[in-house]
Design a protein around this nucleic acid. Structure first.
Ligand SMILES: [Mn+2]
Ligand SMILES: [Mn+2]
Ligand SMILES: [Zn+2]
Ligand SMILES: [Zn+2]
Lengths: 152, 152
DNA sequence: GCACCTATTGATAATAATTCTCATTATCAA
DNA sequence: TTGATAATGAGAATTATTATCAATAGGTGC
């Protein structure tokens, strides 16, 4: 079942309605390989329908998250970034210098999570691993102008 | 070297000054085994000096973070929680139902991080793993009143 | 297709967390 | 003790997100 069909099914089985806005927001998310924030999604959706409001973007993102179709990430900024859920889980490294995001897989993470589940009997709804630091480029740049000071 | 001495050294070597406020905030953090937010820290510090402002708490937390003495966590709420850095890294599971936090260790995580470092040549400054879900108690409660609907 | 019920929307106000501004105070090196 | 300036407190400002509410529009049944 396509994600679009999945969305439609989930919507109808909950007494909700499919709207042009929800359709467009899903399409924007599916078309992107990036980690968009609410503003960026709003911009792209407005290109196709200038009347769509930012609040609707937030509402739809919340809905898609609740349905398990979209994940929200903390990428070192003070606001969220969104992407469609992938078949195999992956995690993120964000460069503080150039803001690039490197995605990586690590089966060991879910294994560690499983052992917590076994030990504590918890039900895990969401797993979030994110790294910040400097990519190899920005790392070199910093090495030359070697900083010692604490920056606040 | 005690963390207090570490703090003092870092402060002086950066041309900064040790103040009563910074002292008190560090003491509050050291005395607590919990994951306090800025408000909670402010409350505790005010008990010892009612004149301390919330902005100073935020400023000092930023300083302690930059010095690597304190870590900020996302525990499923919209604001940060803070704790002193421990010798061995640990991670957090937060129950959506009762808000309890379960800490756990998982050496596999840092191993996965190391393999990313080896592969990409990045410099990792911060690692953040946090889980959300339902603890064994809240899990049972939910099982009885079995929900199917998506809640947004 | 038409009507009706009510979910959804857009606009904007409200909220929450955090940061900024700036006049005043306090640290600390000389 | 003094002077240079880092730090503070109070409150304004900013940013991200959520709530409010009147107007609109899905979708079900006729
Ligand atoms: Mn991703
Ligand atoms: Mn902890
Ligand atoms: Zn970079
Ligand atoms: Zn619980």
């Amino acid at each position: 079942m396509s994600r679009e069909a999945q969305f439609l099914t989930a919507i109808h089985s909950n007494g909700l309605r499919m709207t042009r806005q929800r359709q467009l927001i899903l399409e924007v998310l599916e078309a992107s390989q990036e980690h968009l924030d609410a503003e960026a999604i709003h911009d792209r959706v407005k290109a196709r329908d200038p009347r769509i409001g930012l609040a609707t973007v937030y509402r739809t993102l919340a809905l898609l998250k609740a349905m398990g179709l979209v994940k929200e990430h903390s990428l070192g900024e003070e606001h969220g970034h969104f992407e469609m859920v992938q078949k195999v889980p992956h995690y993120h490294f964000t460069c503080i210098g150039c803001r690039q995001v490197i995605e990586f897989e690590a089966s060991a993470v879910m294994e560690a999570v499983q052992s917590l589940i076994d030990r504590e009997g918890v039900q895990v709804m969401d797993v979030h691993l994110s790294l910040t630091g400097y990519c190899s480029n920005c790392r070199e740049e910093r090495a030359t102008n070697h900083e010692v000071k604490v920056e606040v």
